[in-house]
């Protein structure tokens, strides 16, 4: 049980490493996706410990899991994808301006133009 949680933490930290340690902005966006995925998996995994059946009624004697985390995570997933789309659009724009995905090169280039 602890192992799963530890693995999710590792996934989160891998994603965070992608954001902080990588220079390529596309990889930074990958990292953002990963930490979002880690947060969602964590919420769903822990929420599902309270029962054994999907939260859809209809049959008798169901022992359902907590549906609240699931509803919240639907929102979180969608917001995450929206942010990804926007970040990618900005990244493409920056690439067009500077000819590179490398954050330092972009900064140098943009700095010189201003």
């Amino acid at each position: 049980m602890k192992l799963e949680l530890l693995l999710i933490l590792i996934l989160f930290l891998v994603g965070f490493w992608g954001i902080v340690g990588k220079n390529n902005i596309i990889k930074k966006i990958f990292g953002l996706n990963m930490i979002n995925a880690a947060a969602v998996i964590l919420f769903i995994l822990e929420g599902s410990r309270s029962g054994a059946d999907a939260p859809i009624l209809g049959k008798e004697g169901l022992h359902i899991v907590d549906p609240v985390p699931q509803a919240l995570m639907l929102t979180a997933i969608v917001i995450g994808v929206c942010i990804t789309a926007l970040a990618l659009a900005l990244a493409v724009h920056l690439y067009r301006v500077s000819g590179s995905f490398d954050i330092d090169r972009i900064r140098d280039k943009v700095h010189n133009e201003n």
């Binding site: 965070f16 954001i19 902005i25 930074k28 966006i29 953002l32 930490i35 979002n36 947060a39 995450g80 942010i83 926007l86 970040a87 900005l90 990244a91 724009h93 920056l94 301006v97 500077s98 972009i106 900064r107 280039k109 943009v110 700095h111 133009e113 201003n114």
Partner: peptide
């Protein structure tokens, strides 16, 4: 429409979106 503004928006996006996670 300044390139610097795109970079600023991108930096803001990354740091605040990570903070929101």
């Amino acid at each position: 429409k300044k390139p610097g503004a795109s970079l600023a928006a991108f930096s803001y996006l990354m740091v605040s979106a990570s903070a929101m996670v």
